[in-house]
Structures are given as C-alpha cells and as structure tokens.
Design a protein around this nucleic acid. Structure first.
Length: 424
RNA sequence: GGAGAAGUGGCAGAGUGGUCGAUUGCGGCAGUCUUGAAAACUGUUGAGGGUCAUACCUCCGGGGGUUCGAAUCCCUCCUUCUCCGCCA
C-alpha cells in the first residue's frame, strides 16, 4: 500500500510511475483519495476540538465534585450531552472516510522503480543476463512428465486419487531428489547469511493482509473456514509477517531470513500445456529468501539476491536467463522484479523458477515494519524476497536436460545430497 | 474439550472510576567522573494522527458498551498460565 503522505507530496510523480505499470484508473483514484484525505483532516480537526472541549469539562466536573460543589457539576454535565452526540457523529464520519481511503488505496499498485522498463506484456521484459548453452538432447528424449513415469519418480494419477489434480506423489528417487534439493537450497542460503526459519504453513487473516494476499487475492489461497486460516501460497507470507508491527533498530538491518515450506495455490483458471506435469501445481515445495533492508541499501540488496539465485542455477548446471520485468508484467506489490528462467530442453521453453523483488515500502507500510534511524526517527524499512528456489520446474529441467540413454545424470553438487549420481 | 486465573511501555511490575500516556526498577541513549572501560551520579527514553511549529486528539491484548469522566466497571473475542480430559 502506498503511503498517503507520499502521494500527497508527490502526486505527479506517483501518477507518472503508475502509468509505467499500465494502471489505468490511477488519476481517478488518486484524485479521489486526495479529496477524501482533505475531508479526513478537516473531520479530524473538528472532532479533536470537540473532544478537547469535552475533556476540559470532564476535568472541571471532577474538580467540582471533589470540592463538593455538586450543583455546579450538574450544570456542567448538562453541557456535555450535545458534545457527546457531535463527537459520536464525527467519529463515525471520520471512520467512514478512513475506510473509504483505505479501500481505494489498496487498489493502487506499487510505483515501479525508475529502473523498470516500460512495456505491457512478457515480450517487453528485458533480458539482462543469460548463462549456459541450451543442451541438444539425444534422439528419443521426452518431456519430464514422461520421464517421471518411466523412472517411477512422480505419480500424478495417484495424487489425483488421494487429493486431486496438481497434488503429485513423489516416490523413491523422486522423493529423495526433493529432499536433496531442499537441503541443498537451505544450505546455500544459510551459508550466505540467511537465518533459517521454519514457519507455520497456515496463517491468519492479519498475516494474509500484511503481505497483500488479502483482501483482493483471497481466491488464490486455500481457506480453512472452520478456523479461518489460510494455507500459505509462499513462505514469504509467514516470514515477512514476523516483522509486522515491529520497530527494528537500524543496526538490525539488513535482516536475512530463509525458509523451506510447502506452498499451496489454488491457481483457479489455468489450463493447457502450461499446467502439464510439474509446470504448475497446487502444492509444491520452495525455499524462500526474505530481507528487510535499509531504504538506502535495498537496491544493492536486490542485486545481491539476484546474484545469489544465479549462483545456485550455475551450480545446478542449468541454462538460465534473468529478466528485468517491464511495468506491465510486474506484480502488484513490486517496485522492481527480476525473474529467473531455466531452459526446459524437452519442452523447448523457458520456465520461471524464481522471482526476486524489491517492494520498497509497499509491504512494510501495511505491515508497519519500521526502524529507528540514527536521527531517532522511525521510518519504514524496505522488504525484499525471492525464491531460492521453487522445486518443481527445477526438477522438470534437471530431468529433461540431463536425460541420456543410460539414465538421468544429476549435477555434481546434488550428488552428496541425493546419495546417487544417476536415475535409471 | 471442561474448570479456574491473568493480559499495562523493550523487559519486570504498580495503578481498581477523576489532573494517568500512566509510579518505580531494569535495559537503551546522552552527559559528568576516568588515560580508557566499569562503577557511581545526572538527564533522557512508547506509538499514531494533527500543526509551519506549538496546542490538541487517539492508543493500557482486539472489538463493543456504561459514565460528564474508563487502564480501572460490563459484554464479547483472542492469547497466556494452572488443574482435569484427550493425544503425535
């Protein structure tokens, strides 16, 4: 959520930036917000004045009662009836205005950073880095959903029986590979200074709200209605919410956390080849990295996170590229996002395996995650996160890219974790 | 799940209807002293709104109510603790 004061003071700049995100109703909404904000402040002033008067009278009554002047106290009491009524009215109208502002404000996406390229569709994303050669597969090579069956690694049909589509069952070396990847990713992150967190995988409404899944994206999460809890779509939600309503010390920054969790996504409305095999699932595993950074350092931090993820992909010997997302393809909350895509050799397409973003103060404003600076003032910190990494598409490309007539060869770095070199 | 008790500032802990945004201690910060540190002493130290700046307003687990006035009384929800039950 954008900061009201920031919008008020930088309205033109905000509108200009929102245009890069192709946010259509920006001007209408922002103007309305500013109008309401003026009303809010006027209403607040008026209400405060009445409350001040009522407080003063109450104080007088107290003094009169103490000195035994009951009759005078009664006279004063009579005066408060009208004030009380007005006070109630103004409180209600103020609350109404604030709710309305809030309702509008949550519809406004984050302003993109100045580094974000203009553009509307994924084709307008900027390739900033590319690494590794696309392998030429031996004849007879097949996509991962055939390999998983051939080597009995993942049973999609069994998942349907147990739960439904998009809930695969990993078996044997397939299961072991999951465990290997999770441990490998966590080891990489912890040795890069991220503290490992094992959070709950269900969160309450406040947390869903804090990271922006609620109120608008409610339908994308599984909701346990009897207890009003949500299954997390990513570890970002519980981990970032650790810092909700927290005032940090400047010396605490940057905070670096990582965590492995299963992730649950309803993904209503997707179809076709995009969802085949491991390409898109309702439940999948992911290691997430989260940082809370000083506003002056957050873009440095973002680059560091991008490098970190790239380092993992290099070790996994997967061809990948890094995209800087254009305004139109960025997520609602992000100020700058890099997507990392690995080459899926059998599908002949790029698969997104990581998304690394700086949210600046967009999340922390909602979260009220602040720090006390050297000047003693509290200000909002910046929040960032990235996948490091999501497993399914990594598995898909590992299987596809490394298939040989003898079997699927694991990259060296995974062998100690998996306990085997080849799947055959 | 049943019965009881409790939730106050970073922490501990007073406050049970009036000038309390809150005594005090610890911690933090600044200063004095010291070559430096520690100790001791002095001062300072919650958040949000509002204002050019003051003033002023709101917040004592969340929400609602009673009252001229609520940290204090009532209702409700949440959380924690104790006992019982169940249990990986």
């Amino acid at each position: 959520m954008l900061q009201l004061n920031y919008i008020r003071e930088n309205k033109d700049e905000v509108l200009k930036r929102l245009a890069i995100k192709n946010f259509k109703d920006a001007e209408t909404i922002i103007n309305k917000v500013m109008e309401l904000d003026n009303a809010r402040r006027a209403s607040q002033k008026e209400g405060d004045a009445i409350k001040a008067e009522a407080n003063a009278i109450a104080k007088q009554i107290g003094e009169l009662m103490k000195s035994g002047k009951k009759e005078e106290a009664e006279i004063q009491k009579a005066k408060t009836a009208e004030l009380k009524q007005k006070e109630k009215q103004l409180d209600e109208s103020l609350k109404g205005i604030e709710d309305e502002i809030h309702k509008l404000l949550v519809q406004v996406p984050n302003t993109p950073s100045t580094k974000v390229p203009a553009g509307k569709t994924p084709e307008d994303n900027e390739v900033v880095f590319e690494h590794g050669a696309k392998p030429t597969l031996p004849p007879g090579s097949v996509p991962h959903w055939e390999l998983t069956t051939k080597y009995n690694l993942i049973d999609f049909e069994l998942g349907v029986k147990l739960t439904g589509a998009g809930f695969p069952v990993y078996k044997g070396k397939g299961a072991r590979l999951q465990r290997a990847l999770i441990n490998y990713f966590l080891d990489k992150a912890t040795s890069a200074g991220y503290m490992e967190i094992q959070p709950p995988i269900m969160v309450n409404e406040d947390s869903g709200y804090g990271t922006g899944q609620l109120p608008d994206k409610e339908g994308q999460m599984y909701h346990v209605q009897i207890d009003n809890l949500y299954l997390i779509p990513t570890a970002e939600v519980p981990i970032t919410n650790i810092y909700r309503d927290v005032i940090l010390k400047e010396s605490d920054l940057p905070i670096k956390n990582c965590g492995y969790t299963p992730c649950f996504r309803r993904e209503a409305g997707s179809y076709g080849k995009d969802v085949r095999g491991l390409n898109r699932l309702h439940q999948f595993d992911k290691v997430e990295i989260v940082q809370i950074a000083h506003p002056d350092k957050s873009y440095e931090t973002l680059e560091g996170m991008r490098e970190f993820v790239a380092g993992i992909l290099k070790e996994l010997e997967l061809p990948f590229r890094t995209l800087k997302l254009c305004g139109g393809d960025m997520s609602f909350a992000s100020a700058l996002t890099y997507d990392m895509e690995v080459w899926s050799a059998a599908q002949q397409r790029w698969l997104e395996v990581s998304s690394v973003s700086n949210f600046e103060t967009f999340q922390t404003n909602r979260l009220k995650c602040r720090f006390k600076g050297a000047d003693g003032k509290t200000q909002l910190a910046h929040s960032l996160n990235g996948s490091a990494l999501a497993l399914p598409r990594i598995v898909a490309s590992l299987l596809e890219n490394n298939q040989t007539p003898e079997g699927i060869k694991l990259p060296k770095v995974l062998v100690p974790y998996a306990g085997f070199e080849i799947i055959n």
